[in-house]
Nucleic acid binder design. Structure first.
Length: 613
RNA sequence: GGGCUUGUGGCUUAGCUUGGAUAGAGCGCCGGGCUUCUAACCCGGAUGUCGAGGGUUCGAAUCCCUCCAGGCCCGCCA
């Protein structure tokens, strides 16, 4: 088979979703156990905060958690004090009493009561209500927590974590430039872009890169098509769609006449040698496609800082250098081809880096690329399709052998169509552009029904924002290790557990604030709906931290939905504008805090926080 | 065949790395709510052998083993 439509950083033509592949992974499968928290946020928070007092309570949930953990460890002598989410019972809870029951030969409930009694006297915990409920020790945060959280949440940029000095490079999308981005590729883009936004929110210095595969077989096929098929771009046709037409047609020709494969091979050799005409041919086709990608990604609010071209690592000699370095390893073997024996790392297959005809393979250039990244950045993160799990692990193993930095890889599973796998080569895919167009159309008609009084341009603008929200949220809300089947009905649904649902909560809050006019902020809340809401607001920085630590952007999606849910409940039961005195002021403050948090969350999700819809 | 991975109500899905209090949510279904801050909303109801079976544990959707089913990878492609 000539070309299996493997997009390097796969978008997907299969089913199945994603997973997280850490360097420690691969053999064993129990890599989760070995997961290391590389970004020790808490330490850096403390470092950065220095002597300054708890200035704005920005990180109070995180700090309260750490504080309770510390105190519990000292009180119980346990290495793991069993701190868990308190659910409906509390903000946090400890199950330490269970662990102590055997050694102390006491009933868990009695132990819990005893510990709770001790903790109640600890000065640092004076703002918390600490009580034993059966075997559980419950921690319920008090008024000071609520007011400092509320005060923090009304400020600009709420949720940002202290700046860190480490530099991180994050690569995502990197689809082969042989046709438009489709609904599989943009899973990569959206996971990657959301992660990037979270890293920046978490204070990291970040560069986002797109690795351009400009010397693959697919591109050679496109190049062959350019020179042998008379298929100019149509009027107004986007470059990426044009390239796809040529690619599909060229593949049909190859099916009819397999002899063409030799011509394609020749083009690949020429481009590696640096033959000027062929290089120009490839570069032209790739650029045309890339221009189309950029338009699509910009519509999706996805941005790269740098496009790195694969062929540059041939031209600048880096590929040769890494091959030379590897050749000194005892694992290196040179027969007619050049390969590395990775059996020591658990891989049986020969890891081939140079063909017998002397040309390099993809893996060799990828090594050169990663070495370059490792020498310019402290952390490397790649977002790759699940089809790259093996090659990613081999890459990591080899980088370890030569003592270079290796990436953390976020894998995501594939998006398929109801009728089966997507395939650029076969022309079987739903392009991201088509998806955008359809969703915008649907959004426009919804806006028009709901807000007929708004002028058309305004409705169009809202429709674009709503469509973007629907698409990005639909994708990011699913955990990456889950495969999905693309569904038009779901894509066009703007209710509940959707991006527009969250935008709507934000717009409602804006509407109240617009009507309220000036008011004095009051940071005291009393009833349950208010307190539940502010406690959710207070968790935002903690969620940002969790996303970058665990590389799981869908946590933010879940958080956003829960925040909108709680605001809607508050909205429904607690009148704001009609309330009076301090209650009105306090509720307005809470609405402002919610609005501000929703805005920050939406922006971190790459979604427009529209003020009206 | 080997490695990796997924399996939670009719459908979609959270929770699983760090085991704990009656497994959360949306769609769909049934019943309510717009003279009241935007109904892209809210409230109530029905719906679950957490793929199956073992094991560890005071306690398992979560950890371990076996099995079943789907998927991905296993190229001198990228």
């Amino acid at each position: 088979m000539l070309c299996t439509a493997h997009c390097r950083r796969g978008g997907g033509y299969h089913r199945r979703a994603h997973q997280l592949c850490r360097p420690e992974q691969y053999q064993g499968g129990d890599y989760f156990k070995r997961l290391r928290r590389r970004f020790d946020t808490l330490h850096s928070i403390r470092r950065n905060r220095g002597n300054s007092p708890l200035q704005d309570g920005i990180l109070m949930f995180l700090e309260n958690k750490a504080l309770i953990e510390d105190v519990l460890k000292k009180t119980t002598g346990l290495a793991d004090p069993g701190l868990v989410e308190g659910g409906e019972h509390a903000d946090l809870a400890s199950t330490a009493a269970f662990s102590l029951a055997k050694t102390r030969k006491m009933a868990p409930a009695a132990i819990a009561a005893e510990i709770a009694g001790v903790l109640a006297g600890v000065p640092e915990l004076k703002d918390m209500k600490i009580e034993a409920k059966g075997p559980y020790i419950n921690f319920i945060f008090g008024p000071e927590y609520i007011s400092t959280s509320l005060a923090a949440a009304v400020r600009d940029g709420y949720g940002s974590l202290p700046a860190k000095h480490q530099r991180t490079v994050l690569e995502h999308t990197s689809a082969n430039p042989n046709g438009p981005l489709h609904v599989g590729h943009i899973r990569n883009s959206i996971i990657g872009d959301t992660l990037a936004r979270c890293f920046r929110k978490a204070g990291y210095r970040l560069e986002v890169q797109y690795y351009v595969n400009d010397m693959g077989r697919q591109i050679a096929i496109v190049g062959w098509g350019y020179t042998h098929l008379d298929m100019p771009a149509g009027v107004g046709e986007k470059g990426d769609h044009h390239v796809a037409r040529v690619y599909i047609a060229a593949n049909r020709e190859i099916e009819k006449n397999p002899g063409i494969v030799e011509e394609v091979d020749r083009l690949m050799q020429l481009v590696e040698k640096g033959d000027a005409t062929t290089v120009k041919l490839f570069r032209g086709a790739v650029s045309e496609c890339l221009e189309g990608f950029k338009v699509t990604m910009s519509r999706l609010n996805v941005r790269h800082d740098r496009f790195v071209w694969e062929s540059d690592f041939i031209r600048n000699g880096d590929t040769e250098k890494v091959l030379a370095k590897i050749s000194h390893l005892k694992e290196a073997h040179s027969d007619d081809k050049f390969w590395v024996d990775l059996t020591g790392a658990g891989f049986e297959k020969e890891y081939v880096l140079r063909r017998s005809d002397g040309t390099s393979v993809y893996a060799a250039r990828d090594l050169a690329y990663h070495i370059w990244k490792g020498r310019n950045f402290d952390h490397i993160i790649d977002v790759l399709g699940a089809d790259h799990k093996l090659i990613g692990a081999q890459l990591i193993a080899t980088l370890k052998l030569i003592g270079e930095k290796y990436p953390e890889i976020v894998h995501f599973e594939f998006v398929s169509l109801p009728e089966g796998s997507m395939s650029t080569r076969a022309g079987k895919f739903v392009s991201a552009d088509e998806l955008m167009d359809e969703v915008i159309k649907q959004a426009f008609s919804e806006v028009t029904v709901r807000r007929p009084e708004l002028d058309e341009d305004l409705r169009k603008g809202i429709a674009r924002s709503v469509a973007l929200a629907a698409i990005r949220y639909d994708i990011v809300k699913i955990s990456p290790e889950k495969s999905t089947v693309f569904d038009w009905k779901e894509a066009l649904d703007f209710e509940r557990q959707s991006g527009p649902y969250i935008q709507y909560a934000h717009a409602r809050a804006c509407s109240i604030l617009d009507k309220a006019g000036e008011f004095e902020e009051v940071f005291e809340l009393e009833n349950e709906n208010e307190i539940t809401l502010v406690k959710q607001i207070a968790k935002f920085p903690y969620i940002v931290d969790a996303v970058v630590k665990e590389l799981r952007p869908h946590l933010l999606a879940t958080y956003a939905r829960e925040l909108a849910d709680l605001f809607n409940a508050f909205y429904h039961f607690e009148p704001v504008l009609k309330a009076e005195g301090r209650t009105r002021q306090a509720r307005l403050t809470l609405v402002k805090a919610t609005q501000n948090t929703l805005k920050e969350v939406l922006e971190t999700l790459g979604i427009d926080a529209v003020r009206t819809m």
